[in-house]
């Protein structure tokens, strides 16, 4: 894999740019980084606030040889990578909220959104990662709902150092999904870093219905298993809220 990093001062969205590069034939290893996103996206049309210099906005092109049902493991592997980078560089302990939000005491410090696109060279996956470096530019009312490297350490950190470490860990963990034993490791490592995986009282708003219960692990593809009053539910997508 050849690593190539395209850096921009400002982009509408690093994911959109990486998807466009993938459709034009960009190989695995192409990364897009911007200091600002003017239309940063979260899940299903939500906005990811991406003010100039306030975060690291990163997207990478992957061309995994995986069955479609295994592709979501890449987002769990990405969360493990971000967790470990924040711990090792800044000693920030994060909890992974299923499937891949990074929280510091309930406040979001990083988010991940992945998208696939069909290209002439097969399916490409773009994984976008946003890490908050500072939240001091936000008014107190908004800042209190999020965390940043600055809010946890008092300094914003070195952006280049963060990028270098993130790229290395990200590709390392994603490449492990290529084998069955590697996928198993990803699931185990995810579970070890998430309080949401097991024994958590949660509410999930998923696909038009609301599920409440206690989490009981993730299945072999990363879906969240929840024990409810009526039985067991397996959740593939939805908003998880911790209760108590």
């Amino acid at each position: 894999m050849e690593l190539r990093i395209l850096r921009y001062e400002s982009l509408p969205s690093t994911n959109t740019e990486a998807l466009s590069q993938a459709r034009k034939g960009a190989p695995e290893g192409l990364c897009v980084v911007a200091d600002e996103q003017t239309e940063g996206r979260g899940r299903h049309g939500r906005t990811w606030v991406s003010a100039p210099g306030a975060g690291l906005y990163f997207s990478a092109v992957l061309r995994p040889k995986l069955e479609p049902r295994d592709l979501p493991l890449l987002t769990l592997a990405s969360a493990v990578a971000v967790n470990d980078v924040l711990k090792e560089l800044y000693d920030i302990s994060t909890d992974i909220k299923w499937p891949n939000d990074l929280l510091v005491e309930g406040r979001k410090i990083a988010g991940i959104l992945a998208e696939t696109t069909e290209t002439e060279d097969g399916t490409a996956v773009v994984v976008g990662i946003g890490i908050n470096l500072r939240s001091s530019h936000l008014p107190e009312e908004l800042a209190s709902a999020s965390a940043s490297v600055e809010s946890e350490t008092g300094a914003q950190g070195d952006r280049d150092e963060l990028l270098e470490r993130l790229v290395r860990y990200f590709f390392f963990h994603c490449e492990r999904t290529a084998t069955a034993s590697g996928r198993d490791r990803v699931l185990k490592e995810w579970s070890a870093r998430s309080s949401y995986g097991r024994g958590k009282h949660v509410r999930v708003d998923a696909a038009g219905k609301r599920i409440e219960g206690i989490t009981d692990g993730i299945d072999g593809h990363g879906a969240l298993i929840i024990r409810t009053a009526d039985g067991t539910e397996t959740v593939q997508a939805g908003d998880v809220t911790a209760l108590r």
Partner: peptide
């Protein structure tokens, strides 16, 4: 053939379906 018709989401991976 290459018209995107929908998205199927799993674990915050948005799968584009053609």
């Amino acid at each position: 053939p290459d018209t995107v018709v929908c998205i199927v989401e799993a674990m915050k991976l948005m799968n584009e379906i053609q």
